[in-house]
Simulated scan of single mutants.
Amino acid sequence: MTASIHPLNPAPSLDPLIALTAADMNAVNRVILARMQSEVPLIPELAGHLIAGGGKRMRPMLTCAAAALCQYPGARHHQLAASVEFIHTATLLHDDVVDVSETRRGKRTANLIWGNPASVLVGDFLFSRAFELMVEDGSLKVLKILSRASAVIAEGEVAQLTAQRQISTSEDTYLSIIEAKTAALFAAACHIAPVVAEAGEEAEEALNSFGRNLGIAFQLVDDAIDYTSTSATSGKDLGDDFREGKMTLPIILAYARGSADDRAFWKEAVGGTRTSDDDLAHAIRLFHATGAIADTLERARTYARRALDNLAPFPAGKAKAALTQAVEFAVARAY
């Protein structure tokens, strides 16, 4: 039976996941701190700006929680969770350069402070550190999972770049982009835990699917709250995606459902000629009129329910309960 999600009653929280993984994450953070060091002072300075920037560390926490779910007693997952976080951080550094972003998590971006070349090169350094940690683990299967995820993320970012300001972008193309650029790392972060725990193929398949579905839900919510949140709550300015011409699901749905005048507006907005504050306000009115935001969030809940279903093979306990709340939190943060 499909699990239900009640994002408002009671309010879900990441606290159970944070508590479950606290000891593991202390170990992961020690690895991160040690491996971001370099004799070149700019590297730890710039990397530390982003790594210490207030992120939830959701992906390495998922690795640790999945290891707990599989009752893994060892410590290999600490280095691998650090590798996951380095991959994620490297992609953020590169993304901010590509998007010409000025804020992330409410702080100035590294590229704004140190410039684009430094941000790109420190991102490369962190990717290299991630692969060092994978190789040190010694598992070819783990190396294959994480290296494949890294390649897929890059493909997704390139696909998003080519879809930017392209009003003809389809819903299927959009979903393939977010599955690559976001969900692939969520899936890999969860998948490597049953591998090191030697939990078997069923557990690997379940946790890989769990991470993928959670990642899609997470990105759908992100794309919705770009039009409903503020920098104080989301860490970026309202309408950043709108001004950058990113073809996310709210725009795709609003364009498909709009009148001829609406569609003309969307073509100009996505094309970059209608990006003022008044234009953004008009876009938000069109989202509400067409139900585009509501339906994007409902799509997120569908993927979240699938993620909960993926946990069915695992026994009840603190790890399963924490992961369940993490899924519910991922969609509830839109409210």
Score class of each variant (00 low, 15 high):
91 T>C: 09
288 H>A: 15
247 M>N: 08
112 L>F: 09
103 T>I: 03
91 T>G: 07
209 S>K: 09
117 P>K: 11
115 G>T: 07
77 H>N: 08
216 I>V: 15
225 I>D: 11
43 I>P: 06
115 G>Q: 08
288 H>S: 13
233 T>R: 02
16 P>T: 00
70 C>D: 07
58 M>R: 00
67 A>L: 05
228 T>D: 11
172 D>Y: 04
30 R>L: 11
280 L>C: 04
213 N>Q: 06
245 G>C: 03
114 W>F: 15
11 A>C: 06
138 G>L: 05
318 K>F: 02
143 L>N: 12
190 C>A: 15
301 R>Q: 14
277 D>R: 11
27 A>T: 06
144 K>N: 14
311 L>M: 03
187 A>F: 01
148 R>E: 15
57 R>N: 00
171 E>C: 09
148 R>W: 01
73 P>H: 08
53 G>W: 09
334 A>K: 06
195 V>G: 10
115 G>P: 00
19 A>V: 12
299 R>S: 13
29 N>Q: 15
144 K>S: 14
15 D>T: 14
291 G>C: 01
88 H>F: 10
162 T>A: 01
159 A>S: 13
222 D>W: 07
189 A>C: 05
89 T>A: 02
149 A>V: 09
80 L>N: 06
2 T>P: 14
78 H>L: 04
124 D>S: 03
334 A>W: 04
79 Q>L: 02
65 A>F: 11
128 S>M: 13
193 A>P: 13
170 S>Y: 02
210 F>M: 07
200 G>L: 11
99 D>R: 07
182 T>N: 10
170 S>I: 08
322 A>G: 12
37 Q>Y: 05
226 D>S: 02
46 L>R: 07
272 G>C: 11
253 L>G: 02
133 L>E: 05
121 L>S: 03
134 M>P: 00
81 A>S: 02
23 A>W: 03
289 A>N: 12
288 H>M: 04
187 A>I: 08
163 A>W: 07
83 S>A: 15
283 A>L: 06
329 F>Y: 15
212 R>L: 12
200 G>H: 07
280 L>M: 11
46 L>Y: 08
260 A>W: 01
